[in-house]
Amino acid sequence: MIIQRISRIISNYEMIMPLFAGAVSVLFVVAIFSLPLPYYEEQLYPKTIDPASPLNPYERGGPPFTQVTINDQYPENSPTAGYVTSYLTPFSWYLANTTLYLGTTIVAHPGGILDEILYNTRGLDTVVETTILFIAFAIASYLYRKG
């Protein structure tokens, strides 16, 4: 029976990775066929890229660690948005004022548009993202120590 054959395949947990990969590829093919998706010009978090700059994808324009020009969704809720320093704890604030070594690598990985939004306007996201890293690290270290 075809039903039994299907259930034999999907009940094996070794098969979920191929099944999931298959589903993702099918959907990506569909997504490619539905291109071009409309691009909404009036972006909430605008981004100007200067192709002439040697720092091309990472060049945010303007002096570093001051205010970035952004349009936030709810400007009335976040008056300090745009300042990278607007989320510093008092201790970090002290460090940033006395040393030069705080916040040097905050966008130093290929993150694209979302990361740039993230670090300039969205405090909660920063917390959740670091939590993900922390949890992953906790699992890895536990497994390593357990040996």
């Binding site: 999931f20 993702v24 010009e41 909430l44 979302l114």
Partner: peptide, 23 residues
């Protein structure tokens, strides 16, 4: 699977930001 699922997941978030301009 959870690792690879982040591709469609964040991809969808980025596409929503691009096509509508808001999150």
């Amino acid at each position: 699977v959870a690792l690879s699922a982040t591709v469609p997941l964040f991809g969808a978030a980025a596409l929503i930001a691009a096509t509508t301009g808001t999150l």
